[in-house]
Amino acid sequence: MEEDVIDQIMQIKQIKGLIQTNTEGEDVASTIEDEQLAHFMRFLVGYAPLFEKTAELGAIRSIILTSNKNNNLGVFIGKEHSLGVLFARGCSIKKLFSQIKAYLNKLSIGDA
């Protein structure tokens, strides 16, 4: 079922790659070939709780990095799983995210 959901998200035009990790930071599924980028996304997932502790501003739902030179990337933080997404630069983040969020519950990433 999870593979189906990953496939459906991958159908979104601007998505270039996905990585789904569990609470231990291990890959559940991944379509990202660039291992450095995959590492960076796992790093962001692991970094989120540390930032929450420092900032004390509540739970982090997602972290997105954008650039004019590289593809944009982001991670959606869930309790059981997190989802890293690589997407084309220049696309509407808001629009893309509302599309992705529709699938997140199916991946146990809550109402991120």
């Binding site: 450095q36 980028l37 590492h39 960076f40 790093f43 930032f51 501003l57 509540g58 739970a59 982090i60 739902r61 997602s62 972290i63 997105i64 990095l65 954008t66 650039s67 004019n68 030179k69 590289n70 944009n72 990337l73 982001g74 983040i93």
Partner: peptide, 18 residues
Amino acid sequence: SAHAIDQAHDEIHIELEE
């Protein structure tokens, strides 16, 4: 860390609850 792997990201959005 992004720059260390040759990524030129210069904008971060950290989405909180509200």
